[in-house]
Write a protein that binds this DNA or RNA. Structure first.
Lengths: 187, 187
DNA sequence: TTTAGTTTTTGACATAAGTCAAAAGTTCAG
DNA sequence: CTGAACTTTTGACTTATGTCAAAAACTAAA
């Protein structure tokens, strides 16, 4: 719990009261490698904070699994589209390592927004950061070569390489595993 | 102004008081085709609401202009990264048609957040919608072929085709103009 | 109209990345 | 250890898309 709070505080300092209310609304869970937080077709009703472990988000495209994001320590994870709109998710969220997570459902989160302007502000600020991150990933995906995307990954998030099998990284970079292997062989 | 207000209200209903305060903080401006709202290297200090016209966001990659988004009627536009972080923008925003815009600077916006929980909520909700939109564009960019991306564009935002020259559309789709031309020739 | 200036299409060729299949390298339970 | 089950690399070949250059089709001012 301390990790969740201190991570949140790094974004925006909450009043003691709001912080307390927040604490009471999150529940801790532990799940094992390969288990699912969400499978496609279901509505994602929870937001998770990943305290320890790693997950991936992927969906099915013509029988192929497309891993489009990873979550690691200190990340908020959910199927954003489904959580916000209440529509069935098109994606799956699966643990690639055993995880410790903090979870909150949509209704208590909405209640927190109503009660604490502070918490809504926090979330507004977190959205801004996540939006900027996604925008950067978008530009990289569309306008950089496979090699450049891999180099960016090495520099920006090298920890991914140590914890995720190559096949998943290739999918994440939007290239085939063989191409990634060849890129790596030239350093 | 009515258009701005009714568009905002479609996202989230504001109190009369908040709506009033909001009105007072936006200023109307008109600019001509080809003028710039922002050029790279400068800090983007304003958020714009596009009432009429069209703009593009682009940046320079090895001497090539990469148009990565368009803005049309009812869109909020800004260099998100620069506006939020206060760092110099890496992108340019240029009018591709003459425009009528409503503008607000960062400080009055922050003041509005402080005074009206309502307005911060509105922005939180707008962020959610823009995030979902970007997420979809990201997945399309990385995992679909040029042809599929063009077909999606025809179905989802056909108005872009009528208002934007092919070269810019190709750049937006992340393909060369020649490839786009060939895709089109096969219907 | 005519003509200059765009914008779009076409052609020939180059290249990045994908696919399929097999070999090599790891990991780990028994 | 040893062998089964993954994961990663290599090889041969295909395909989508890019690049450069020129032709064709528009557009709009004179």
């Amino acid at each position: 719990m301390q990790q969740l709070l201190s991570h949140i505080t790094a974004h925006h300092r909450l009043s003691a009261e709001a912080e307390n209310a927040l604490q009471n609304c999150f529940t801790e869970i532990s799940l094992n490698k390969n288990e699912f937080l969400l499978t496609q077709g279901n509505i994602c009703r929870h937001l998770y904070f990943l305290e320890k472990g790693a997950v991936r988000g992927f969906y099915d495209l013509d029988g192929k699994e497309i891993t489009h994001w990873f979550g690691f320590e200190k990340d908020f994870v959910t199927s954003f589209h489904s959580f916000i709109t209440g529509e069935p998710a098109v994606e799956n969220i699966q643990l690639i390592e055993s995880c410790t997570l903090w979870t909150i459902a949509k209704e208590p989160l909405t209640d927190l927004f109503n009660q604490y302007h502070d918490i809504e502000r926090l979330v507004r600020i977190v959205y801004e950061k996540y939006y900027i991150r996604l925008e950067e990933r978008y530009v990289n995906a569309q306008f950089k070569s496979a090699k450049e995307r891999y180099e960016d990954l090495i520099h920006q998030t090298p920890h991914i390489l140590e914890r995720v099998p190559l096949g998943l990284i290739a999918a994440y970079l939007g290239i085939s595993q063989e191409t990634l292997s060849r890129i790596r062989s030239k350093f």
